[in-house]
Design a protein around this nucleic acid. Structure first.
Lengths: 153, 153
DNA sequence: CTCCTTGCAAATTGTTTGCATACCT
DNA sequence: AGGTATGCAAACAATTTGCAAGGAG
């Protein structure tokens, strides 16, 4: 049984806080890890996890997501759909850094991901001028997509 | 009776779409205009507007907000509080441009506004490479505020 | 006079909570 | 053993919707 870095880190952080290592917590983080790149809602995660473990409750998913986010193991994305999405934390996803930028079309509501980091310099500037230590950022651009532009308006 | 630019623009856009100019719509936009700089929830707006016009319903506030946002007369801000906030559109607020950047402390949940435009260049880059026409952007920085840093963790 | 719009109340949806039981350590 | 976590169901809160009545064009 190979135990990966993510799981080890979870256990470590849990112990650090005197919290317990439960199967549910491992499974939920693992579901997020195996779906790297997708943006999952609580409901999505619930469905993924209950495929193998139907006994797990939705409330546990919500509580665990909250916990994982507090521990900075997962990232939060809000695309104004009335629900929040999550994915494995950019600190854990293997690559150097992975930020969440999205172009949201105000005409057709399409969401276009845009992966390029624009705010390295801005973060340094904030730390320097405000003393706020930046861990992560989320950027949304609202506008009109190419297709809707073409169709006029 | 002076009629300001904002109200005129609202009327124009409504007529353009064959929609009706109602008192409720004027009042709600006006409440937002008079509270430039504050970030108002639907409930906030409802309370402001019902002070003078108690007959207006909350549902109308929601429907009108939606409409004003579609017409790009107001801006949307989501600070992960479980509700959405609005303010008079940056295209209407007199100044050149006014964007919504926030520093959100992951320890104490404080929200610190940060008014400085960081993404002019990024927007041009997006337009060039993707054809997406950017109208507005919203940026959130998650991290740890100066005070929480001091208190250690 | 014809739709669009409103107010009200009921319905929805995403998320949180209380509590008895089950489980880590 | 002892406190933490879980599952379930009920509670909540923000937002949406159906519908009859009112109002703008």
């Amino acid at each position: 049984m190979k135990k990966n870095r993510t799981e080890e880190l979870l256990k470590e952080k849990l112990r650090e806080k005197g919290l317990k290592v439960t199967n549910q917590r491992i499974l939920i983080l693992s579901a997020l890890e195996q779906n790297k790149g997708r943006h999952l809602t609580a409901e999505d995660i619930y469905e993924l996890v209950t495929q193998d473990h139907p006994e797990i409750g939705l409330a546990t998913v919500y509580r665990t997501i909250q916990l994982l986010w507090d521990m900075q193991l997962i990232d939060k994305i809000n695309l104004d759909e009335g629900c929040v999405r999550y994915e494995i934390g950019h600190l854990l996803d293997g690559e150097e850094r992975h930020n969440h930028h999205h172009l949201i079309c105000r005409t057709c509501n399409k969401v276009i991901p845009f992966d390029e980091d624009l705010l390295e310099e801005a973060e340094r500037h904030i730390e320097r001028t405000t003393g706020f230590h930046v861990l992560d950022h989320e950027v949304k651009f609202y506008g009109i997509c190419k297709e809707c532009m073409k169709k006029g308006k």
